[in-house]
Computed example of a mutant assay.
Amino acid sequence: MTALESVATYLPSGRVPIEDLAGQLELTPMQVKLFRRYHRLAEVRREPDGTLLDLLLAAVANLDGLRGREHEIRYVLHARTFPVVVPYPVNPVHALCRILGLDHAVAFAVTHHACATGLLALDLAGRLLAHDGDGLALVLAGEKTFTRDAQLVPETSVFGEGASACLVRNAGPRDRLLAYAAHVRGEFDDELSDDPAAYQREYHSSLADVILAAAGKARTDLGDVRLILPHNVNVVAWQRLCRRIGYPIGQVLLDNVPVAGHVFCADAFLNYQTARERGLLRPGDRYVVAAAGAGRGATFSAMVFEH
């Protein structure tokens, strides 16, 4: 059974208020006010002089569980929101492997589930390790806000920079993956759809359905779920979703939304780290990690873990 061995994160020290992004993102004063007061997005993190490789290396540097175990790494996966995150022929994942002495590992990117790709990468890492029988996988997440599409989800969220690094093993005593559910909705491709707003209309019901599906697979009632670790799209989206599924909003860890924004596929790991640091998870607690991503279609995903 797939398990999380160790998780580390990195957020740049540079804090940029939403108001300072208005000109760059062509936001009106009303849109800025909407982001801050309604969606509770106050600021994002930026590292203007740093590269994507710098972000990923900074996260791995905080991953104490990796030190001295580099030889056990069989796979290195980079979970990406966007298929292309650096100009060709730059390859930050292979560069990271060379720097850290992980050249022996199979390294590749995972994408096409947009901001839900982090969950896909965890599932894929676990299945690869189950086939091998031993070893570890290193799952990376985090991207640079290098284009306007990588800075803003119109009317919904603002992307921030940061990164995460997670060690995954085939089996372990804690943070065991009990269930994974993912629903890909190809009809929500804005470029092909006659109704581009359909994704926004069905977002809450689709994400609610996949959370309930994962809980059902894990034979877990939502009342027994200690915590939901969300993707940090905005606060109001989760308020609406919680009303739909009857789950207490106070048990959704939203503290990182105002101070970090939506950190691509790293949100789940950032929120996990916060939960651990604050002692919000006790041994045996079950928790849900949920995410949605839109791009070429849409993906709604959820995982149930036991701490």
Score class of each variant (00 low, 15 high):
A213W: 05
L56N: 08
A298G: 09
H104M: 08
E19P: 01
A266W: 01
A22T: 12
E155D: 15
L152D: 07
Y38T: 13
L281H: 04
P283I: 05
L192E: 13
I228M: 06
L281F: 03
C97N: 10
L253Y: 04
R148Y: 03
P258N: 09
L53N: 04
R148T: 14
L11R: 04
L167N: 00
K217D: 13
F305G: 01
V257P: 03
A214H: 02
D149L: 14
F300R: 00
Q251A: 12
S193F: 02
L270I: 08
D20T: 12
V7Y: 00
L270H: 14
A3N: 04
L129M: 09
E26W: 09
G246S: 03
A268W: 06
D285H: 12
P173Q: 07
R169E: 14
R40T: 09
N62R: 15
I249N: 10
A181S: 15
G250A: 13
L25V: 07
L119I: 08
V233N: 00
G14I: 02
L57H: 11
D64F: 00
D149W: 07
G118E: 04
D20K: 12
A58I: 06
R169A: 09
D20Y: 00
L41S: 03
R46L: 13
V236D: 14
L140T: 07
A291K: 07
A268V: 11
R282N: 10
G246N: 00
T51W: 05
L222F: 10
C242V: 09
T81Q: 12
L63G: 06
E191N: 13
S193V: 03
V86A: 14
N234M: 03
A42E: 15
V288G: 00
R127N: 14
E72T: 06
T28V: 10
L57A: 13
V110L: 14
G261W: 04
F146E: 10
G295S: 12
L178C: 06
A294W: 10
A95S: 14
D285L: 12
R169K: 08
Y272G: 02
G14H: 02
R80H: 13
T51Y: 05
G160S: 05
Y10G: 07
L41F: 01
L138S: 09
A171P: 01
N62T: 01
L100Q: 13
K217E: 14
A290E: 00
A266Q: 02
R69H: 15
R278I: 03
L227V: 10
D54F: 11
V76Q: 12
P89A: 02
A121C: 11
A109R: 08
A3G: 02
N256Y: 03
A268D: 03
F264E: 03
P87S: 05
R80W: 05
E72C: 05
A171Y: 07
R148S: 11
A182C: 14
S205Q: 12
L21P: 05
R127L: 09
G172S: 01
L53T: 04
C115N: 13
S6A: 15
G133W: 10
R40F: 06
L280H: 08
A213M: 12
L56D: 06
